[in-house]
Design a protein around this nucleic acid. Structure first.
Length: 144
RNA sequence: CUGCUGGGCCGGACGGUCGCUGCCGGCCUGCGAACGCUGGCGACAGCCAGGCUGCGCAGGCGGGGAGAGGAAAGUCCGAACUCUACAGAGCGGUGUGCCGGAUAACGUCCGGGCGGUGGCGUUCAAGCGCCAUUGACGGAAAGUGCCACAGAAAAUACACCGCCCCGCCCAAUUUACUCAUUGCGGCGUGAGCCGCCGCAAUGGCGCACAAGCGUUGUUCAGGUCCCAUGGUCGCAAUGGGCUAAUUGGGCGGGGUAAGGGUGAAAUGGUGCGGUAAGAGCGCACCGCGCUGCCAGUAAUGGCGGUGGCAGGGAAAACCCCACACGGAGCAAGACCAAAUAGGGGAGGAUCCCGCCGGUUCUCCCGAUUCACACCCAGUGGCGUGAAUGGAGAGAACCGGCGGGAACGUGCCGGCUCGGUGCGUCACAACUUCCGGGUAGGUCGCUAGAGGCGAGCAGUAAUGCGCGUCCCAGAGGAAUGACCGUCCUCGCCCCUUCUUUUCCGCCAAUGCAUUUCUGCAACGCGCGGACAGGAAGGGGCGGGACAGAAUUCGGCUUACAGGCCCGGCAGCUAU
RNA sequence: GGGGUCGUAGUUCAGUUGGUUAGAACGCUGCCCUGUCACGGCAGAGGCCGCGGGUUCGAGUCCCGUCGACCCCG
C-alpha cells in the first residue's frame, strides 16, 4: 500500500532540523487574527480556508524570519476532544511543511470538520499547498 | 450453563521515528546590574577599558526525567482558601426534615425503626418469621384555601329520600275486616359464574323492608326477571283485636343517623343483643386515641388499663415547627509595572504676625420635639441619643485689610550702608518626586481532609497510629502525529477433526497375480452433500464515553469490552 | 466562574400563575366559486405538549433529574 506515501514519510523523518514548531511560531493574539482577516487574502482549498498577510515590522524578535501560523477551531466543529484532535493534526501537518514557505507571513488556517477523518497524507499535501500559495501571493502583492 | 438484575474493579499492552509544555543539571551567545579582580586616569567622590568568577533574563545545542479521567463532563450540593462586611441577635430569603452514628462539611455514606412491593418457609386460614428491594419518611385537633364530573351529601355534618312514632283531615270496609300461627293448593323453573348430568340431572354462589340498584339485551322506544327455609295469591282451621278499628292518601310535629350502589375518596369494621325505628346504645374481636409499666441512647416495639370514636385526601397549595446558612468568588486576591491621558507635592514663583467676614469640623450652653431605657399609683421624674437653635471657644481652609522681614527694582543721601516708593499677582512651559492604575508580567499553583501496604478499634460508614512514595500544572490553553507487533470482538474464506440427517456403493483401497481375476469387509464399513460445533491459518472492519483550568468530599449523567461477588427464574448433571 | 429565558400542529405563538375541554393565525388536503389562476366561501386532517421518573383521583401546568437552543454579567 501507498509506496509513494511511505517514501514521503521516510524523507520527512530524515529531515533533521527546522521541522519544529515552538510557541514563537504560533499566532496567538486576537489582534493578529483580526489584522490577517481584515488586510490579507484568502483561499479555500477543499478542507480548509487559508488566510494570509505579509508581516512588515517583523524586526528584532526571535523567530521573525519565517511564517507564523494560527488556527481557528470553533465550537461548531465538535466537542473538546474533536477540536483538540483537529488542532493537533493541523499542527503536525504544518510542522512537516515548513520548507514550503520561507517568507515572513502570518497565516491562519480555518479547518473544516472533515480534517478529523481525512488521511494524514492528503492533509499534509493540502497544508503544504496552502503555505506555498500564501508565500507566492504575498510576494506578488509586495511587488505591486 | 443461559437469561434478568444489584454491587465492586479495570478502562487496551509493548515498541520505533519525529514533535509540544514545565522541571533538573551541562555547554555556547547576547544583555543587565554588582562592581569582587587587573590596568590606566584622578580632585581619592569616582570614571574608562579589559576579561575571569558568581547572579539574573533571553535565545540556541545536546542530555535526564515527567505529563488527562472514572467520569476530567453537568455545575446539583458541601467544604478548604482569598477578599469584603461585621458588637450581638432578629426579620426576610433559601435549603434540609423517622432515629442514631460517620465526617472538615453535606442534600453524602453506614446502621437501625416504620411503611410499600416481590419471593420463600410455616399455618386450614388469618397471621408470623426470614431474604431481597424500595420510600422528598416532621406537622392536616395552629390557621387560610382546594377537592372537577357524578352523587342525597365532599368536610360544618346533616338539608333531602327513606324508616319509625304521635296528632288532625279525607276516602274505603264492616260481622265483616285485620293480625299471628299451622295445613293444603296454585303461580315460578331464572340473565351471569362454578359444579353436575347426557333423556338424565336440576345443587351451589350472587342485593333489598322500600327508595333504588344490578343483570340481560343494546340503535332507541319498549319489554323481561321474584322463591326454594323467610315471596305472593287463594282456601280452611285455631287464637287475638273490635265499633270503633284497620287500610290507603294528604298535612303538621317529632325521633333516627342503619340504608340511599355515585365517586379517587362517604364520618370506625364484622357479629350478636337491643329498639317504635334506629344508633358504640350495650357486648366480643379487630382498628384508633389517651395513659401506665417494661425493653431500647432514640426512632419504635411489647404487655396492661381506659375512652366509646375524637373523625377523609392533599403540605412536590399557602403555611407551622425544628435545624443550618453574612456576601462574593482564583477573572478571588497579592506584588512589579510600559505607553498615553489624568491626579497630587516641590522647584519655577516668599515668608511671618494681627484684625474682620464666610464655610466646614470639634467642643460648650440651655430650650423645644422625637425615640429608647429606667423609676413611679400617675397626666410625672430622670438619663442617653438624634434633629432644630444659640450668644461662646478652638482648629483647618478661603477671601479682604493692615503691619513686619527678605528679595528685585527706581530715586535720594552715600559708599564694607541708610531712608523712601513700587512690585513679589495669576497661569503655563519645563524639571523633579509621589500615589492610584490599564496593557503586560510574576505569585497564588499544586505535599494534599494525598496515594499504596499491612495492623488495630468498630456490625459498618469510618477512625487511629506505623512504614513507604512524590504522582500534570497549561494559560488563544501542552499531554500529540504516524507506523509496527500483540490482545479482544464481528463477518468472510481455506484446512483438519467431529455430530445429526440424507444419498450412493460393496466398491474405492490394500495384498497376490503377466493378464483375466482372486482375497480382506454388511461393518462403530467406505465415499459424497446441506447444516451445526471445535481447533488452526488468512483477509477485512471495529475497540466506547469523553480532555485537567484553584483544590478537595459527594451526587447525577454518558460509556465498547473484560474480570470478581451476590439475588431471582429456567435447564442439565451429581 | 456566576445568572437567566425558552422547548406545545409543517411554521409563528397562546394556554402554565390559580390542576380536570389543547387552541389561534399562516400553511396543507378536499369541495364550491372562475373559461383558468389568484382572492374568497365551506369542510377536514395534522399534537406521545423535548425526554425520563415522581406527587395526585387526575399533570402541558406542581416537584426532581436530564437533553437541547439562546441570552446576560465579571
Amino acid at each position: 500500500m501507498a509506496r509513494d506515501g511511505g517514501d514521503r514519510f521516510m524523507a520527512l523523518n530524515g529531515m533533521p532540523a527546522s521541522s519544529r514548531f515552538p510557541k514563537t511560531r504560533h499566532l496567538l493574539k486576537h489582534a493578529d487574527f483580526q489584522r490577517v482577516y481584515q488586510g490579507g487574502g484568502r483561499q479555500f482549498t477543499g478542507n480548509m480556508t487559508v488566510f494570509f498577510l505579509r508581516r512588515e515590522c517583523g524586526g528584532g524578535e526571535p523567530g521573525a524570519g519565517g511564517p507564523k501560523v494560527g488556527f481557528t477551531v470553533g465550537k461548531a466543529l465538535g466537542g473538546s476532544v474533536e477540536r483538540n484532535r483537529i488542532k493537533r493534526r493541523m499542527r503536525e501537518a504544518v510542522r512537516r511543511s515548513w520548507p514550503a514557505c520561507e517568507a515572513p507571513v502570518d497565516v491562519v488556517f480555518n479547518p473544516r470538520k472533515s480534517v478529523l477523518s481525512l488521511p494524514f497524507a492528503k492533509l499534509l499535501d493540502e497544508v503544504e499547498r496552502g503555505l506555498r500559495l500564501a508565500a507566492q501571493r504575498t510576494r506578488v502583492t509586495e511587488q505591486k
